[in-house]
Design a protein around this nucleic acid. Sequence first.
DNA 1: ACTGAATATTGAACATGTTCAAAATAGTGC
DNA 2: GCACTATTTTGAACATGTTCAATATTCAGT
Lengths: 229, 229
Amino acid sequence: MFNMESVAKAPHKAEITGRKILDAALNMFQTKGFEETTMRDIATSAGVATGAAYYYYPSKDAIVLAFYEHSCVEMQPRIEHAVAESACKLEDRLKALIGAKLDYFAPYRGVLRALLKNGADPAHPLSPFSRNNRPIRERDIAGFQKILSECHIRVPQDLGPHLPDLLWMFQMGVIYFWITDDSQGQQRTHRLLTLGTKIVASLLKIAGLPLTRPLRKVAIELIETAKGT
Amino acid sequence: MFNMESVAKAPHKAEITGRKILDAALNMFQTKGFEETTMRDIATSAGVATGAAYYYYPSKDAIVLAFYEHSCVEMQPRIEHAVAESACKLEDRLKALIGAKLDYFAPYRGVLRALLKNGADPAHPLSPFSRNNRPIRERDIAGFQKILSECHIRVPQDLGPHLPDLLWMFQMGVIYFWITDDSQGQQRTHRLLTLGTKIVASLLKIAGLPLTRPLRKVAIELIETAKGT
DNA sequence: ACTGAATATTGAACATGTTCAAAATAGTGC
DNA sequence: GCACTATTTTGAACATGTTCAATATTCAGT
């Protein structure tokens, strides 16, 4: 018998099940919250047995990570659009990039809160800082790299190589703040973002002055120590 | 019958049991690790039933918090001594204070790792940032306040009130880094501390210059936004 | 010393993340 | 189509943090 579904791409049943579980999980996380949703709930809602969820995702947290990973790819066009719309100044582009990311994640703020659990431990496989998630992180950092080169920022030779990572760290700080920001519409985060980008841009201008060279040298040493390379 | 124990202080049995449980827990955390130690282990080792542990500590994490709380009081003299030994310069005193804290906590580094779990969420009762732990935090911050006034740092009027909190945040950053620093003897953290204090001291000197006023104004606005007051 | 209230202790039961051996299904070479 | 392997699915069992009704103990007032 002819099957419409199987014509295009012919996704294996496995992929479908995996997606079904992830969708069910995300729906329940949003409506009931992460902690309140049990793996049994998710499996039942997806129409599979409990164990099936673990066949596709090694842990409950891993489901959140899968969502995060998937999102990073899916939001890429939106981010590029938002960045392109903004004025070609580091301050504006930075704000546009991070702001677009927050907008995209807005409906899932409560879901991402789950990443806070182990997100701070670089040894944990689910941390954005872990070796495990290096691919995601590097794609993310590349976005900042792009902004920097497009804006033709004049930056000291020694600081240059670290700048994308620093901006990425700044972004992570904003996101962590945002996750736990319960102000109306997360307005505090948006204010923080506005002020933060302004400061970052100012600092970069100052960083070029000869006067700041000694301080910059120490700062770079600190950065390299923190990176552990 | 005469009882030697009851002469001095006459600690209620409750206090003894509570301490017995905490001691048992800390011992096992250190030897077996936090995750690997079960509440049943702790209770058994303390010679009580499982439920008793929960009568004294509302959760497993709470045991770690109790330890942290107790430590903060106990280490006070050591810290004051270390600070008094150091040169009366902000850079040195800051390093002495934070260094002393790390030294004290060194044997329990693995234990404190447990605080990383919910430590980043200010809404969680076990977070050092939570309203719940305000007393501990404020005593902690007072230590930095003291250093600042002793060193006769000349600091702009508008920045002054925020400075103790900022130094406290700096300390928390160092501690979080330290908890997950697996380098030999945590030498990376100590390097980070040396460089960090140097930068903090330098920034404070610069902060007084008229040139930096606009940037400082924005920074203070950011700080106030972050504090949410 | 006695008694009732406050406090302390028990251990079984519960909830939930996770594991795993067994069963069902899909895919492959002949 | 058949046998055989690999993949997928199942659901019961397990481990552990946590709760709680029942019981035991301590304490204060008389």
